[in-house]
Design a protein around this nucleic acid. Structure first.
Length: 293
DNA sequence: CCGCGGGCCTGAGAGC
DNA sequence: TGCTCTCAGGCCCGCG
C-alpha cells in the first residue's frame, strides 16, 4: 500500500489523536508481524505520552516521553484507523463498504483522550519496533535510507551523483531507498511519466561525464516533488488497502497518468500512444513508450 | 555491484 | 457456487 504520500497522510491523521496524548493501554492481538514484536513492546508503551509524531521515508516515528521512539512501517497492506470515541463513530467514516472488518487489527492503542487507534494489516508485512532515541541513528532500518524527496538535500546534483555510474535502470534506481527514500512503484511510474523519461533508461544518464546533473535529472527531481505533493494533498492513492485514518479513501488514484492504466490512451495532449506495462525487477512498470524516452 | 527469483502473507478478481 | 490462478502501494535474502 503505502508510499510516502500515504504514510504522510496517515501521519497527519494520527496527529490529532496521538500527539501530546498519553497511551493508557496497548493491546497486541498478534505479535507476529513482518518481524515479531519485542517481548516488552506493550510494557514500554503503556502509560507513555507521545510527544511528537514524525516520518522518515515510509516509516512513522512516534516520540515518547520515556526517551523511546516507536518506529512503524505499514508494509503493503497496513493502515491505521482512529476512532475518536472508541466505537468507530468518526463523522463521515462509514461511507464505504470495504475493509470494515476489524479482524486484522493487530495492535490497538487506547489513549487517555478517549481515542482508540488500531493498526490493521491483513498481510502482516508491516511491523513496529521500539528504539531508544539515542540508538536511532544506528538503527539498521533507517541507517541506509537516502534523502527525503521533499527535503532540501534532494536535488538534481545529489540525484545525479547517486546515479553516476549506475548500470541499472532508472526505475530500479528510484525504487532503491538508498538513492532516495519514500518512493514506491506507483510514484516512480508517475514521476517518470511526468518527466518524460523511460523507465528503461540507464540511471547513469542523469549525470554527464563530470558527474553534473543533466536536464533529465532536473526534470525528474521536479516531477518527483510535484507528484508527491499532489498525492499528499489528495490524501494518497487508494487502490486496495489504503485508507485515511478516518476510513475515507485517498483520491490520487484518479490522477494517475500511467499506473494501473495498461491499454488505456496516453493522456499527454497530442499523444496517440497507449499505456504499456511490462515487468521490471519483478514489478509492473506502466509507461507510455511514445512520450517517455 | 547487478539482476533475478523466491519468500514473507492475505484477499480480490478473473476465468472456468 | 467454488475452485484455481494471478496479482498487489514493500522489502529482504541468497544466488550466479
Amino acid at each position: 500500500m503505502p508510499e510516502l504520500p500515504e504514510v504522510e497522510t496517515v501521519r497527519r491523521g494520527l496527529i490529532p489523536a496521538m500527539e501530546g496524548a498519553r497511551i493508557v493501554r496497548v493491546t497486541a492481538h498478534r505479535g507476529d508481524l513482518r518481524f515479531p514484536l519485542q517481548q516488552d513492546f506493550a510494557a514500554r508503551l503503556d502509560g507513555r505520552k507521545v510527544t511528537g509524531l514524525g516520518r522518515r521515508a515510509k516509516y512513522l516515528l512516534a516520540d515518547l516521553d520515556s526517551g523511546d521512539v516507536l518506529l512503524m512501517h505499514l508494509g503493503m497492506s497496513g493502515s491505521f484507523r482512529v476512532m475518536l470515541d472508541g466505537h468507530g463513530k468518526t463523522p463521515g467514516a462509514f461511507h464505504h463498504r470495504r475493509n470494515e472488518s476489524r479482524t486484522h487489527d493487530h495492535v490497538v492503542f487506547e489513549m487517555e483522550n478517549g481515542a482508540v487507534i488500531a493498526f490493521n494489516d491483513p498481510r502482516r508485512f508491516g511491523y513496529m519496533k521500539i528504539v531508544a532515541r539515542a540508538d536511532l541513528e544506528g538503527e539498521a532500518f533507517l541507517k541506509a535510507l537516502g534523502p527525503e524527496p521533499l527535503g532540501n538535500a534532494f536535488d538534481a546534483a545529489m540525484l545525479a551523483q547517486a546515479c553516476k555510474g549506475k548500470k541499472t535502470s532508472l526505475k530500479a534506481a528510484l525504487l532503491d531507498q538508498r538513492v532516495v527514500a519514500g518512493l514506491g512503484n506507483i510514484y516512480v511510474c508517475e514521476a517518470l511519466f511526468r518527466s518524460r523519461l523511460s523507465p528503461k533508461r540507464q540511471a547513469s544518464t542523469l549525470a554527464n561525464r563530470s558527474g553534473a546533473p543533466t536536464e533529465h535529472a532536473v526534470r525528474l527531481v521536479s516531477a518527483i516533488r510535484t507528484v508527491l505533493n499532489a498525492a499528499i494533498e489528495a490524501g494518497g492513492s487508494s487502490l486496495r488497502d489504503h485508507r485515511q485514518t478516518s476510513g475515507e479513501l485517498g483520491y490520487f488514484q484518479h490522477s494517475f497518468q500511467v499506473y494501473d492504466r495498461e491499454g488505456e490512451p496516453c493522456r499527454t495532449r497530442g499523444c496517440r500512444g497507449t499505456v504499456k506495462r511490462f515487468t521490471q525487477n519483478g514489478r509492473s512498470t506502466f509507461w507510455c513508450p511514445s512520450c517517455q524516452k
